[in-house]
Nucleic acid binder design. Structure first.
Lengths: 312, 312
DNA sequence: TTACCGTGTGGAACGCGTTTCATAGCAAGT
DNA sequence: ACTTGCTATGAAACGCGTTCCACACGGTAA
């Protein structure tokens, strides 16, 4: 009942394992007669080569690990979509690695890279410092999805600053002055948050009137609306997602208040419904670029331009 | 520069590979002195065992393959979330396999199961007949996410009929008569679609006034609204997703028409926003159950009750 | 003192495909 | 007749961790 292996096939076909291997891989010299006999035995025994053995022999797995905190935000699902389409086209498999922004967990994935469980690792987001990713490159390709600055690390990311600059300038041009921002994570943890705040300051010369952090879902938006509504002079809310913006708006409505004008991000359905301005970061494209870096092992920085969509 | 292996460690520590292996796995007898010396060498060389070799030796990978057509629907992202949380807890990795409902692709994944690339395979949806999945079980655990009927196949799925029955009875009780359904795929392809139609007929004794197929996104909903609006006597639209329902409603609005009453599914943000009735299928829970079946290899049917949410 | 048990350790085989290298037959070129 | 140069094929080593089994040593129960 135990699985047939290449030596079984060789014996039954009257050839050596080497010839069977060549036949399977269409490599080297194999006579037509040998190939035919071997194929016949293979078909008869329903033999397929064992991938693990092949991987061991070749020292690779054709697996890319993709570290995601969770799959509840379009940023992650879209980027994973992009990665997996590209990976599929290149005959790689995508291994989903849930991190929950837990540094210890992220390190276990770096260890798995060291252990050759994957050929490369893509961090869509992270809790550990970039320097650890840089160091891990000795074990295999490592790609991050944010601007790595001067760090020698492969990266594919949204050129957020440009889009934020454009967005904030537009806000300023429209005459908005008392602006609230919502962020997914505190600026001490997130480069995206830092970029948002820095660009805001660059345009307006001051900090936003209000900053809400740890906002990632519709429910979070709904929740912070109570707090935001206390600032009666707010005239704009720049949020970090269309779903979130939608939650904020609903939170205001349920307090019988009218929300200030809102901008979302990610170009989601909820934002389309409300006709909110948004920023499209092209996450699928970023995912595809990240995979490409992972597969080739190139250490390069691939910024992707984000687009401000004002929707008429 | 090539990686150290267990024999290198053994040599440098003055012990045999067997003892090193025992030390690494905390199995069998190892003296404290031996363990200390070996650990020291391991630390010095930054050695970690090679996972591929371990997998080969043990004949397993601790990988579960998850076949998904795409990740654009909450059904799939949620189920993958559920699977990956459970997998993580059990020290398994999740390999994402994109299928695009392509039978040939799905078969390549079955082959990969045969080749031991994964220990088990979960089909969240499929294009190939169930019988092929049944047959593939000889190579490893195979789980589907739909009612397998009498087929001997592990399954975790939403008890859709019950929820649909409840929903349609409620519609009937409310006096609706001219009802349109939207479906993701034609009933010849999708068991879900068949279940929806069959339950409708059971309650209303006739087919729905209109059936729209190939509807899976907000955009699709928006598109079919044009067609639906031609039927001026429609009094209800039962759609296959909240986002879709939202798209339909918007499509009507943009034609300066008022949409009939709508029901969605999946309990999404957009539906919450519009206060639409919906059906929550608890996909995360289904994912977790599917993983459990995959990991244990149990061949059982795990139906999960879906809930009708009428929202006040 | 003999018999037996727990502890500690190593040799060697195992899982299985790939690849290098050597060997050999045979035809074309000189 | 002799060197080249393919075409074919196999033996054996390789990648690397695990595990079975045999072998020791020290102590204890009989």
């Amino acid at each position: 009942m135990t699985m047939a292996n290449i030596r079984d096939i060789a014996r039954l076909a009257g050839y050596s394992p080497a010839t069977v291997s060549r036949t399977l891989n269409h490599s080297g010299y194999v006579s037509a007669t040998a190939a035919a006999k071997i194929q016949a035995v293979i078909a008869q025994l329903d033999y397929v080569p064992n991938d693990i053995a092949r991987d061991l022999s070749q020292g690779r797995t054709a697996n890319v690990g993709v570290v995601v905190p969770h799959l509840n935000a379009p940023f992650f699902t879209e980027i994973v979509n992009g990665i997996s389409s590209a990976a599929f086209a290149a005959d790689y498999n995508v291994v989903l690695l849930q991190s929950k922004y837990d540094a210890a967990l992220e390190r276990t994935y770096l260890t798995q890279l060291h252990r050759k469980a994957f050929d490369a690792l893509i961090f869509t987001s992270r809790a550990i410092p970039l320097t650890e990713l840089v160091a891990a490159q000795q074990y295999g390709a490592v790609v991050c999805c944010e601007n790595p600055g001067t760090k020698p690390l492969a990266a594919a990311y949204s050129q957020r600053e440009t889009a934020y600059l454009q967005a904030f300038r537009w806000l300023k041009g429209q005459g908005y002055q008392h602006i609230a921002l919502t962020l997914s994570r505190d600026a001490t943890l997130s480069a995206t948050s830092r970029a948002t705040l820095a660009t805001f300051k660059r345009v307006f010369g001051c900090a936003p009137a209000v900053v809400e952090t740890d906002v990632t879902t519709y429910q979070d938006g709904y929740r912070v609306a109570t707090d935001l509504a206390k600032n009666t002079d707010l005239d704009y809310i720049f949020s970090n997602g269309d779903d979130i913006a939608t939650g904020i708006r609903q939170g205001y409505l349920d307090q019988h208040r009218t929300a200030p004008a809102l901008m979302g991000q990610e170009n989601q359905v909820s934002g389309q419904l409300l006709g909110l301005p948004t920023i499209d970061h092209h996450f699928r494209q970023i995912g595809a670029a990240a995979f490409d870096l992972a597969a080739t092992g190139r250490v390069a920085s691939v910024p992707v331009t984000a687009d401000l969509l004002l929707r008429r």
